[in-house]
Amino acid sequence: MTLEIIGISVLWLFLFGYVIVASIDFGAGFFNAYSLFRGKQHILTRIIQRYLSPVWEVTNVFLVFFFVGIVGFFPKTAYYYGTILLVPASIAVVLLAIRGSYYAFTTYGGLRQKRWTYLYGLSGLFIPASLSIVLTISEGGFVSEKSAGLELDYWALFTSPLTWSIVVLSLASVLYISAVFLTWYANKANDEPATELLRKYALIWAVPAIVTATGIIVELRDHNPEHFSRLMDLWWLFGISFILFAGTVYLIWKRKLYGLAFGLLAGQFLVAFFAYGVSHYPYLLYPYLTIYDGFTNEAMAIALIIAFIAGLGLLLPSLYLLLRLFLFNKDYVQGNRDDHA
């Protein structure tokens, strides 16, 4: 394994972590707002608040980790993506900022207004939409290198069906991942009405999630044939991912083993995410930048990997403690304890 591959795998793994934890977070915000809109807030709010409160900050760090790490391992991405993404990334940051701070303001500061709940819920859909555009751009075809510098063709980007399919996929996945997780969480809290409602959401969003995912593969055939053929070489990985998907839906449908159902879902996304990543190899940005010509020097790469391993040694036990105290603590989950400062 070369240093380049270790670097990109580490980053990809963290991005995967972000996709899962952020999806749970975004989806929870949306379901919360939606249930308020439908007058069913009493069913969901408590369970969603219990989950979100102690972990919201941690979610953000996964993203920061990814973009700081990618500039470390692949400094050329700072030039390419930094120049292109000024507008979409700024919009995403502003949305993230509003969302994160208003979460703290409402939860700890008692700023409870319906308006904010709706804004909070909707921002959770706009953020994955704006972030997913980066994936579309990475497929190439929207960036041109001119004498004045790099330019992003917004018109081509926003009229491309690929862009919108990826946006829809990101939204459907967010809601699907979140619903499956919260079904499990509500079930652990012995909250039957919430479990039933979330189970319904999970089953509803399973369909668009899998349909758009398949649709995107088809669209890539025209948009980026090279990438498409590499995707096809990995068909068996997507097959495994589909089987895991079917398993999750079956368990949720039968109201059985929600914990395992979420495990299968995580597996489904992990396999698909890595299959996509591997097929994207070696390009970071079609056709300008590969992981080889964008890579940092050897000394820095080794230093970063050592720092990463040391960091993980610190983080994994802490994350475990966090999960044990809140996610897997019966008293906390069922609402028998609230020791907030």
Binding site: E57, V58, F65, M300, G311, L315, S318, L325, D339
Partner: peptide
Amino acid sequence: ALPLFMETFAFFFEAIFLGIYLYT
């Protein structure tokens, strides 16, 4: 890049324990 990268770890560490401290 090394200290920038390590800063995210330091912050990660802080965020996790702040969550725990706050709710215990």
